[in-house]
């Protein structure tokens, strides 16, 4: 079997009083061995639920899934031996020290820190100076490194990371992704979820999730290439007024704010910057700037959400 994770038509819903809340619908995908696979989607898309099903913490209502060739319901014991799971919330023992947490989880997995030291070395070295400190007293970035070390302590074949970079500063985020690429070199399949679209391009392949469904699965490049319409970025002195004006006119198809620019798709594509400027000339805007740009994952996400 070539795929590290295979999910087939998984459905999960929760009962909240009398209403049924659908968390996952018709989820199917495959992750190849050694791949860095991203689940990209906003909060509430169903990413955590999917992780909990794959790590055997939750049972799906319908559908089936395999992790490392083992079925998640009947062979959960095998899966628990060989997956690493890092939940979105820091959930190690705050009152145990760094070292104690590590050796605790190592023992539960019937291994030891020494045995797999080479795997976590590069991560653990960064927190080793604080190994006598209680986990609760670590900084956010350190806690995350400790959690990752604990998830890796038994040399898992598949690693599940639930929003590992949420609430982490930009530098640590960059470092963290570098770590993930290093781990990939050890042959570990990594499945990572994130609400940040910019991190999608760091994955080998991504699944875009929205409201309990997967909208598209492709490589980051494939996804942006699928964005067929020419995209323009527009800015002026009063960005909010500009957006309202663009949206109210009938020249522009879509307009979304992206930081300092608005990303705009015209109904009738202008071929040059001049033409584009003319198309929106009716809008009185100061310091108008128009530029042709390539699509990002986020543009594709917005486009998919419209469908």
């Amino acid at each position: 079997m070539n795929s590290a994770v295979k999910v087939n038509n998984v459905y999960k819903s929760f009962k909240k009083g009398k209403t049924e809340v659908k968390a996952l619908q018709e989820i199917s995908f495959e992750v190849n061995k050694g791949e860095l696979f991203g689940l990209i989607g906003p909060d509430g898309a169903g990413k955590t639920t999917l992780f909990r099903i794959l790590t055997t913490l939750m049972l799906a209502n319908k559908g089936e899934a395999w992790v490392d060739g083992f079925e998640v319901v009947s062979q959960y014991k095998e899966i628990r031996k060989r997956v690493g799971y890092m939940p979105g919330r820091f959930s190690l023992y705050q009152d145990l020290t760094v070292e104690e947490n590590l050796s605790f989880f190592a023992t539960l997995f019937n291994t030891s820190l020494q045995e797999n030291y080479d795997l976590i070395k590069s991560i653990y070295q960064q927190i080793e100076p604080f190994k006598k400190r209680r986990a609760g007293a670590l900084s956010g970035g350190m806690k995350q490194k400790l959690a990752l070390s604990c998830a890796l302590i038994h040399r898992p074949t598949v690693l599940f990371l639930d929003e590992p970079t949420t609430g982490v500063d930009a530098v640590s985020r960059k470092e963290f992704w570098e770590l993930l690429h290093q781990l990939q070199a050890h042959g570990i399949t990594i499945i990572v979820s994130t609400p940040y679209m910019d991190e999608a391009s760091l994955c080998d392949r991504v699944a875009l999730m929205q409201e309990s469904r997967i909208m598209e699965i492709n490589s980051p490049k494939g996804i942006t290439e699928n964005f067929k319409k020419p995209l323009w970025s527009v800015r002026s002195a009063d960005m909010y007024k500009l957006m309202l004006d663009l949206r109210s006119g009938d020249v522009v198809d879509t307009c979304y704010p992206f930081g300092q620019y608005h990303h705009v798709v015209f109904k009738k594509d202008p071929h040059t910057v001049e033409e584009a400027k003319q198309a929106i000339a009716t809008i009185s805007a100061k310091d108008l700037e128009v530029q042709r740009i390539p699509a990002t994952i986020e543009d594709c996400f917005m486009e998919l959400m419209r469908k």
Binding site: R80, F90, S91
Partner: peptide, 11 residues
């Protein structure tokens, strides 16, 4: 505090 989840994914 969620530690039971971490325990539950162990064998």
């Amino acid at each position: 505090i969620g530690t039971i989840e971490q325990i539950n994914v162990t064998p």
